[in-house]
Design a protein around this nucleic acid. Structure first.
Lengths: 204, 204
DNA sequence: GTGTACCGGTACTGGACCGTATCGGTACAC
DNA sequence: GTGTACCGATACGGTCCAGTACCGGTACAC
C-alpha cells in the first residue's frame, strides 16, 4: 500500500516510479527496526534513520506519510513465520524444534515486542502491523502443530492444557529477561518444553 | 532517601522540613504511575504530573532531582507483595490462590511493567526500582510457596518443572493481552494453574 | 538534447518538554 | 511581629524532533 516496488519492472503505469529499490527499502526497514530495538519507539527519529541509511528525511517522508506509518510498513515487511516447516510427525519433537527455533530469534523479537508494546496501545495501525508480523503467524503455526498432534491421537481433543500452550511458550520467552536478566536461549526453551509443556500435555 | 517524611512529627533536626505530607507524596506517586500506565514512560511529563496533582513543577524538582529518580521513588513506594500471606497447607491450593490474587492486579501491574519495560534498559536505578517493587518480591513469595510444597513432600525436590513455575505464571500473565486482547483475569489464571501448572508438577 | 521526476542535503517552522529562575503568598517558629 | 523556608505559579532558555519547503544534481525516457 505504501510501496509499489513489488510489481515487475515492466509495469509502466505512467504513475510514480520510485527510484527506491526493494533492497534499498529493506535497508530503511532494517535500520528503523534496529533503532527501535535499541532506543525504543519514542526515541527513534526519522532523522536518525535517514542518517544511518545515508538518505534524506525527505526521501522517507515521500514514501511514508508519518513515522508510525513508516514503522508499520517496516513491521509488515519483516513478517516471516519462524515455526514454518516444522512437522516431524511427533508433537513432542515438533515442540522441541519450535523451542530451538524460538531461542534463535528470541533476543531480537523480544526486544522489538517490548519496545513497541506500549506504542501499540495508542496506534491502531501499528498494533495491527505488529500482530500480523510477529504474533499471529507464530500462534497459528503453533496451533496447527497442536492440531496435528491431536489428529494423530497423541493428545486427547479438548485437553485443557491445549488452550494455554501458546501463552506458555510466548510468555516464558518474554519474561525470562525480566526474571533472569538474559534472553531465553534455545537450551532454556527446550528444557522448558520437556520439563513443563510436555508433562502438562501428558506427553513423554 | 529522597524523603524524610517517614519519621515522627517530633523529629526536629533543624534540617529541611518538607511541607509535603506522606499523603501528598503518595498523590504524586499515584499520579505519575497512572500516567505511565496510560501514556508510557517517555510521554509522561513532569508538567503533566504537576498539573494533575495541582502542584508546581518546582515542587517536584525540589524533592527529586530528575524525572527518572522521581519515577524510581514512586516505584519503590508502591512496593507491596501481592502473594503475601498465602499459605493454605497445600501447594495446589496455594497456587490457585496466587492465581486469583494475580488476576486482581493483573491489569494495573502488567501495564506498568509493559510501559517501563524498555525505559529500564537504559537506566540502572529505574531497573532496580522496578525489580524491587514489582518483580522480586512476587518471585520470592512464589518460590517460598514451592519450597513449602517440597518440604511437605507434595513435590519431589529437584522436580524439573519447579524452575519454570515463576516464569510460567508471570509469562502467561504478561502475554495474555497480546494474544487474546484482554488482561488475564482471576478465572483465566486459575484455570491455567489447574490445566497446566499442576499437571506439570504431577499434582492434582 | 531536452524534459521530467525523483534523489540527497539543508534550512526552517512549530511545538513539546526538561530543568532553572524568579516572585508573591503563607504557614510555622520563636 | 518578624524571620524563614517552603509552597504554587509562571516565565524562560535550551534542546530536540516531526514534518515541510526548497534547491541543485542526476538518471532515465523519448
Amino acid at each position: 500500500m505504501t510501496s509499489q516496488a513489488a510489481d515487475g519492472p515492466e509495469t509502466v503505469v505512467a504513475s510514480r516510479r520510485s527510484k527506491i529499490t526493494p533492497e534499498r527499502e529493506r535497508e530503511f526497514f532494517d535500520a528503523v527496526l534496529e533503532q527501535i530495538r535499541e532506543c525504543g519507539y519514542d526515541s527513534v527519529t526519522m532523522e536518525g534513520v535517514a542518517a544511518s541509511t545515508r538518505c534524506s528525511k525527505s526521501t522517507l517522508y515521500r514514501q511514508w506519510k508519518t513515522k508510525p506509518q513508516f514503522v508499520a510498513a517496516a513491521l509488515r515487511a519483516s513478517r516471516r513465520v519462524r515455526f514454518a516447516g516444522i512437522d516431524t510427525g511427533s508433537l513432542a519433537e515438533d515442540l522441541r524444534q519450535a523451542a530451538r527455533a524460538a531461542g534463535d530469534w528470541s533476543g531480537k523479537d523480544t526486544r522489538l515486542l517490548q519496545a513497541l508494546g506500549h506504542a501499540v496501545t495508542s496506534d491502531q495501525e501499528l498494533a495491527r502491523a505488529l500482530r500480523e508480523a510477529l504474533v499471529d503467524p507464530e500462534i497459528a503455526a503453533l496451533e496447527e502443530m497442536l492440531a496435528r498432534g491431536v489428529a494423530r491421537g497423541e493428545v486427547r481433543a479438548g485437553h485443557p492444557a491445549l488452550e494455554y500452550i501458546p501463552a506458555m511458550m510466548f510468555g516464558v520467552l518474554r519474561v525470562r529477561p525480566v526474571l533472569n536478566g538474559q534472553y531465553a536461549d534455545a537450551d532454556y526453551l527446550v528444557r522448558f518444553v520437556e520439563s513443563a509443556v510436555l508433562p502438562a500435555l501428558g506427553l513423554r
